[in-house]
């Protein structure tokens, strides 16, 4: 990976893209006290290198579970999943992805800089490089100057940006983002979405993004995976071919509205029963 080269994404797109995620027949059943819950049923999904893929669906549709399966935080009961060509577990052990949770989950006793450097400490980076990377990625998420603050001294949006810097710090090729901006207000959210797009465009990373906002999914993605609950399954995969350097204005275009309508009708068909 050469994240410093702005053209990395463009170069990658020109080549035939290898698969970052390859899920075949993935099913996952949780055994709870109230009986078995089928969280995922026969999920097949291929994500190419450099894609920005959004999982969208109502709560309980298994989008977070699918992401946790990719991250090897859950094990499928059936089927196989390959991440970067190896098993999900091996990919996790090789630290090939960065996971961003719904909550920033910064460690409250660490300053922002020490939070960002935490994965680097764990992975055994030398102190000088830890500091250099921390400064680089805090600058990337516009948090320079907040190094010595503790998490509670920052707003929710700033905390989430710090958690993104933390996930980027060890430069994983794959970013898994579980409703990272779900708790933020819409103005902050639009802003962060734009920043995220820039970052994706500049670094050429593969991003998997869980959301339940249709405009967010259409605006960000190259591919939208529509899911439906009970059992959690994929009901539509929609390509979304806006240019990589898209801006918020594309939300007024007919193409945007057309894709949004297709997503909405997909979500409706998943809800064929009354609720």
């Amino acid at each position: 990976m050469t994240p410093s080269q702005p053209a990395a994404g463009a170069v990658r797109a020109a080549h035939a893209s290898p698969l970052t995620v390859d899920a075949r027949g993935v099913s996952l059943t949780f055994h709870t006290r109230d009986g078995a819950v089928e969280a995922l049923a026969d999920v097949n999904l291929q994500i190419s290198d450099g894609d920005f893929v959004s999982f969208i669906g109502p709560s309980g549709c298994g989008k977070t579970t699918l992401m946790r399966v990719i991250a090897d935080l859950e094990r499928p009961t059936k089927g196989t999943i390959l991440v970067n060509g190896v098993s999900a577990e091996e990919a996790r052990l090789k630290r090939q992805y960065g996971y961003i949770f719904q909550a920033p989950a910064l460690y409250p006793w660490r300053t922002i800089e020490r939070n960002v450097m935490l994965p680097l400490e764990i992975m055994g980076y030398p102190a000088g490089e830890r500091r250099e990377r921390m400064q680089r990625y805090l600058k990337l998420v516009n948090l320079s100057g907040f190094e010595r603050k503790f998490p509670w001294q920052l707003s929710g949006g700033m905390q989430q940006r710090a958690s993104i810097a933390r996930a980027l710090s060890f430069d994983p090729a794959l970013l898994l983002m579980d409703e990272p901006f779900g708790a933020l207000d819409e103005i902050v959210r639009d802003h962060l979405n734009e920043q995220l797009l820039r970052l994706w465009d500049q670094t050429g990373k593969t991003v998997v993004f869980v959301t339940h906002s249709i405009p967010e999914a259409v605006f960000l993605s190259t591919k939208i995976v529509v899911m439906s609950p009970r059992p959690g399954r994929i009901i539509d995969i929609i390509p979304c071919d806006f240019p990589r350097d898209r801006t918020l204005e594309i939300r007024e275009t007919p193409e945007f509205i057309k894709i949004a309508q297709r997503v909405r009708s997909g979500l409706r068909s998943g809800h064929s029963y009354d609720e």
Binding site: L73, Y99, A105, I122, M123
Partner: peptide
């Protein structure tokens, strides 16, 4: 929190690291 523990898992931290950097300070 489970999330804080999950994070350690995503970084494939070993048990000693989880103890020193998460469980102990918490």
């Amino acid at each position: 929190d489970p999330i804080q523990l999950d994070l350690m898992r995503t970084w494939s931290a070993n048990k000693l690291q989880v103890l020193r950097k998460l469980r102990w300070p918490a």
